Simulated scan of single mutants.
Amino acid sequence: MATSEAYMRTPTQQAWRRFMRSSSGKAGLLIVGFFVLLALLAPLIMPYDATKDRNLRERLKPPSAEHIMGTDELGRDIFTRVVHGSRISLRVGVFAVGIAVVAGTFLGLLAGYFGGRTDMLISWLVDIMLSFPSILLAIAIVAVIGPGISNAMIAVGIVQIPIYARLTRSVVLSLKEQDFVAAAEGLGAGRARIIFRHILPNGLSPLIVQATLSIATAILDAAGLGFLGLGAQPPQPEWGLMISKGFLYFTRAPWISLFPGVAIMIAVLGFNLLGDGLRDALDPRTSR
Score class of each variant (00 low, 15 high):
84 H>M: 12
62 P>A: 15
198 H>W: 08
159 V>R: 07
4 S>F: 10
9 R>K: 15
46 M>E: 08
104 G>T: 05
187 L>W: 01
81 R>Y: 06
33 G>S: 08
73 E>Q: 14
234 P>F: 13
218 A>H: 04
165 A>T: 05
118 T>M: 11
132 F>S: 12
245 K>N: 14
70 G>N: 09
65 A>Q: 00
90 L>Y: 02
274 L>G: 02
65 A>R: 10
279 R>M: 07
91 R>V: 15
187 L>S: 09
233 Q>M: 10
120 M>Q: 10
270 G>D: 02
250 F>C: 09
259 F>W: 11
32 V>L: 05
93 G>W: 03
118 T>L: 12
50 A>T: 10
24 S>A: 14
167 L>P: 00
202 N>H: 13
156 V>E: 03
197 R>W: 08
172 V>Q: 04
60 L>F: 11
109 L>Q: 05
103 A>D: 01
117 R>V: 15
178 Q>D: 06
15 A>Q: 03
241 L>Q: 08
118 T>C: 10
30 L>I: 13
180 F>A: 09
253 A>C: 06
74 L>A: 15
197 R>M: 14
156 V>C: 04
238 E>D: 08
111 A>M: 01
269 L>G: 01
241 L>P: 00
278 L>T: 07
85 G>D: 07
49 D>F: 01
119 D>W: 02
124 W>E: 02
24 S>N: 07
240 G>F: 07
151 N>E: 09
54 R>G: 00
35 F>M: 09
258 L>A: 14
25 G>K: 04
109 L>P: 00
234 P>G: 13
171 V>S: 13
143 A>K: 14
103 A>P: 00
146 G>T: 08
178 Q>P: 00
243 I>Q: 02
55 N>E: 05
222 A>L: 08
132 F>Y: 11
131 S>P: 00
119 D>L: 09
276 D>S: 09
52 K>L: 15
186 G>D: 05
76 R>H: 05
225 L>H: 04
115 G>F: 04
253 A>Q: 04
258 L>S: 06
197 R>E: 13
223 A>C: 12
132 F>D: 08
202 N>I: 12
194 I>N: 01
209 V>M: 02
136 L>N: 05
268 V>Q: 07
67 H>C: 10
97 V>D: 01
216 A>I: 06
147 P>Y: 10
52 K>E: 13
237 P>H: 12
25 G>W: 03
128 I>W: 07
74 L>H: 11
156 V>T: 10
26 K>Y: 01
6 A>N: 11
79 F>A: 15
208 I>E: 04
61 K>W: 06
179 D>V: 14
218 A>V: 09
258 L>C: 07
141 I>L: 11
73 E>L: 12
62 P>K: 13
96 A>F: 04
124 W>Y: 10
259 F>Y: 12
213 L>K: 00
240 G>A: 11
161 I>H: 01
81 R>D: 05
52 K>V: 13
7 Y>K: 15
19 F>N: 05
94 V>A: 13
142 V>M: 08
69 M>Y: 09
161 I>C: 04
19 F>W: 02
140 A>V: 07
107 L>K: 01
47 P>L: 12
7 Y>V: 15
176 K>L: 07
92 V>W: 05
244 S>G: 10
114 F>N: 05
74 L>T: 13
10 T>M: 03
217 T>G: 05
78 I>H: 04
213 L>W: 00
